[in-house]
Amino acid sequence: MAFAFPPTPLIGVADLARVREQQPVRILDVRWRLDRPEGRPAYLAGHLPGAVYVDLEQELTRPGHPEEGRHPLPHVADLQEAARRWGVRGGDVVVAYDDNDGVAAARAWWLLRRRGVDIRVLDGGLRAWIEDGQLLEGGDVRPPAGDVVLADDDPGTATIEQTARAPQEGVLIDARAPLHYRGAAPTPDPSAGHIPGAINVPTLAYVAADGRLRPPDEVRRTLTDAGADPDAQVVVYCSSGIAAAHTTLALASARIDARLFPGSWSRWSRSRGRPVAVGPTPWGEVFAR
């Protein structure tokens, strides 16, 4: 069954303020970045009023074996327990934000969007909120426990086999920066390069200078300019499944339903027998492993 798109996966600052006047909204602060994975200190210093801190490394990821990749998906029971800690109740509107162009917030959105939660990402994040003159509050927010029940549904994943076939059956997008795609940057993974046949479209290509997502027509044009057909079956991966969730958010804003390979490069590069391509082109110079 085809995925039914909500009107938009995004919400603007003005719309958030208006919705909060009409009904309860649970706001999730998902501050995380590779160079600063612990976002709680920044959250405590100042966050959107009522926002609950979400620990991406502990609540939107689970411990796993190295061959699963660096950020395995949480089990649905654990995710539901976390969502209840955040105070999410059945029927709530949920808004996630961060201070990193929506990359971390998109992980929460992607995990919850098909599981019965009406979740949006604050377009422009913390920066847009501050630039609009809105106030912040400090300290920790610990709401009463919620009662949300998450559907045990696939959030939109592609298996490693489906990912391997994606270039022949549709489009495979590598959402990493070009140096990582080409295999020219240091990596914590066993090898550098990309999945053969993948087209490189860095996820930040969808972000405007003000930190908001580009309009839907520009998102589609970004894909076509890279040589990808936005109407084909799309599979996305990145280093470990975080940035790729942001790409699925950008594509969803343009009504393109993409599936995500959760283990991404951190899993592919640890899987025996999977070939590696290096260089600036999709097939590049391919090495057997």
Rank of each mutant, 00 (worst) to 15 (best):
A2D: 15
F5A: 03
P6K: 12
P9N: 00
P9R: 01
P9V: 05
P9S: 03
A14I: 03
D15C: 03
A17K: 09
V19C: 03
Q23K: 10
V25D: 09
R33C: 14
P41F: 10
A42I: 01
Y43R: 07
G46T: 01
G50W: 14
L56P: 04
Q58S: 02
E59F: 03
L60D: 03
R62Y: 08
H65K: 09
P66F: 13
H71S: 11
H71C: 12
V76K: 07
Q80Y: 03
A83W: 15
R84M: 07
W86L: 05
W86N: 04
R89C: 13
G91H: 09
D92Q: 08
D101G: 05
A106R: 05
V117N: 05
D118V: 07
I119S: 03
R120A: 11
R120M: 07
L126N: 06
A128I: 14
I130E: 14
G133N: 04
G138I: 12
V141H: 11
R142K: 10
P143G: 04
D153Y: 08
D154E: 00
P155Q: 01
G156N: 05
T157Q: 03
I160G: 04
T163R: 01
P167Q: 09
Q168Y: 09
Q168W: 08
D174S: 14
D174P: 13
R176V: 02
R176A: 06
P178N: 12
H180C: 13
P186D: 09
P186G: 02
P188I: 02
D189F: 15
P190M: 14
S191E: 02
S191A: 12
I195F: 03
V201R: 04
V201G: 01
T203E: 14
A209E: 15
D210E: 15
R212N: 01
L213H: 06
R214W: 13
P216H: 07
D217C: 07
R220T: 06
L223Q: 08
L223R: 06
T224R: 15
T224M: 13
A226E: 00
D229G: 07
Q233I: 04
Y237R: 13
C238S: 15
T247M: 14
A250G: 02
A254D: 05
A254K: 02
R255L: 00
I256E: 10
I256P: 00
L260E: 06
F261K: 05
S264H: 14
S264I: 05
R270Q: 14
G273R: 01
V276E: 07
V278Y: 12
G279L: 08
P282G: 14
W283I: 00
G284T: 00
E285Q: 08
V286F: 11
V286E: 10
R289C: 00
